[in-house]
């Protein structure tokens, strides 16, 4: 994957810059979290949410569906079958969105390193903003991880969600390696990139060509008279 420089330049006039600043300020302080509890790390989350560590004081609260969430929290090893669902969930989230991988398993497969059925490195399939390593990380580590994510967002340095659109071909290629060429989610990522002006150098490529060949059409139902 070509490393794409994350642009920190602000666009537009002063007024819209102020709005962007405000947006980022609020975005860093209001994070809805969707925990995709795949493995043992899930057990560390209840203390994070409840009275011992209380993540709500950071503005982080749990949400239920990907539509509502800002953070996708993956708490352990990801089997290939699970990864399909994780991909769908990730794609259904609204941008700006952030991915946190908890436990060593999401970093390098951890103790499932030798398993044929486990996806080893999560960031081959989706851009991960933050890893919290450990087997399993303590709630303190999770809180401090959340804090550093918040700091990154506020500084405007956490724009990994754009990478998924701009480098879609790379991620799709890795997914196709695992799932085969027939792979597609019901989410029209390329259409989204075009709609929101997020097309980058790596959006199209050989893998998206394969996708477009096999893909079931995903046009929205237009209202017609």
């Amino acid at each position: 994957m070509k490393e794409i420089k994350v642009e920190n330049r602000r666009e537009g006039n002063i007024l819209s810059r102020v709005f962007d600043e405000l947006n980022e300020f609020c975005r860093a302080r209001s994070l809805f979290i969707l925990h995709y509890c795949t493995g043992c790390g899930a057990i560390e989350l209840p203390p994070v949410m409840t009275s011992r560590f209380d993540m709500e004081r950071l503005g982080v609260q749990p949400m239920v569906t990907p539509r509502q969430a800002d953070i996708l929290l993956i708490t352990g090893y990801v089997s290939i079958k699970t990864l399909k669902r994780v991909m769908l969930t990730y794609e259904q989230m609204g941008s700006p969105k952030y991915v946190i991988g908890i436990c060593s398993c999401t970093v390098n497969g951890g103790m499932y390193w030798q398993s044929y059925a486990t996806a080893k490195k999560l960031d081959e399939y989706m851009p991960v903003d933050l890893y919290i390593a450990g087997c399993m990380p303590r709630p303190e580590a999770i809180i401090s991880g959340l804090r550093s994510l918040i700091r990154n967002i506020e500084l405007g340095e956490s724009n990994n969600w754009k990478k998924y659109y701009e480098n879609y071909d790379y991620y799709l290629g890795n997914q196709q390696k695992l799932f085969g060429d027939e792979w597609q989610t019901p989410v029209d990522v390329i259409g989204e990139a075009e709609h929101y002006g997020l097309v980058g150098e790596g959006t199209y490529g050989e893998h998206t060509e394969i996708l477009q060949r096999v893909q079931q059409p995903l046009k929205p139902l237009e209202m017609r008279l």
Binding site: R67, R85, P186, H195
Partner: peptide, 20 residues
């Protein structure tokens, strides 16, 4: 912000894939 009209299959089903 801007929103995008999506296909009805792009819908929350608890991580399941929907088919027509």
């Amino acid at each position: 912000g801007k929103s995008k009209r999506v296909n009805p299959l792009d819908n929350y089903a608890g991580g399941h894939f929907l088919y027509a």
